[in-house]
Design a protein around this nucleic acid. Sequence first.
DNA 1: CTTGAAAAAGCGTTAGC
DNA 2: GCTAACGCTTTTTCAAG
Lengths: 159, 159
Amino acid sequence: MNDGELDDVDRNILYYLQQDARRTSSSEIAEKLGLSASTVRTRINKLEDSGVIRGYHLDIDYDLAGYPLYTKIICTAPVSERDELAGAALKIDGVTAVREIMTGERNVYVNTIGRDHDDLNRISEELDALGLEIVDEQIIRDEYVCPYQGFLDGDADAE
Amino acid sequence: MNDGELDDVDRNILYYLQQDARRTSSSEIAEKLGLSASTVRTRINKLEDSGVIRGYHLDIDYDLAGYPLYTKIICTAPVSERDELAGAALKIDGVTAVREIMTGERNVYVNTIGRDHDDLNRISEELDALGLEIVDEQIIRDEYVCPYQGFLDGDADAE
DNA sequence: CTTGAAAAAGCGTTAGC
DNA sequence: GCTAACGCTTTTTCAAG
């Protein structure tokens, strides 16, 4: 699909988009990198087409949004069914992310949001009904998602 | 800051922005909800100001981007230092997310990306140096981040 | 919350270095 | 691969109802 290698310009573009993917325009990035807007636009399109950029999403404060209960449910799935079960879990209302772990008993992590304990109980039941054995359930106190990745540091071509 | 309650219009806006936060314009959402573009823009501004929308971020395929090693490092921190240590961990190159758990021994989860094992080793060492005791380290096989949350289902005002 | 205008900024394409 | 310029489309901002 592409040569698979990102150069400094690509990394810088990812860096700036990571900061504010909605309001940062191509021309704005171009100005900061000392390139033309066309170039940046072409690069972004390539990053999207090649699949490096999978999408642009919201970072929501679920607490303020009315879903104050944020948990991580740790499950066990047979390796043979792990992929399938993980996919099914993602479709449950209130599930925000699913991660599959390579090895071990705790091999599926499910992140959830809820308005109250009824929501959480329902999610637990649905996971159980799917065949995911719940090993542990933890209430998340706080979550920091990094809008900045060091590897994508932005000063290669930058002034 | 606000009354804290989101109505159906707000939830619909969040839903549509969640799909494609960069390319979905206010007018596009307005059309789908049968409202004017101005109204939608005002709502979005309010959601940003009130903090419900914390930001707009990229969903990057780190594998394609050249960082094929994706891990979850589970740590223990004394409750009194947990906040501080979690904040410090977020600044390490390669750390993409940090989650604080309310209770238990495994109370800080650190997600990381890396090009090779040297990156991972360095991150582990830096976490250790901070004072975070590493309890477990797991290689993530696959991650699904949900671009759609059931609670934010979009058909209240929609046609 | 809506409308409607002007102003501004975006994008894709083209041609050329 | 980058730049620059064209034209087109879209968004934004502002006023007013």
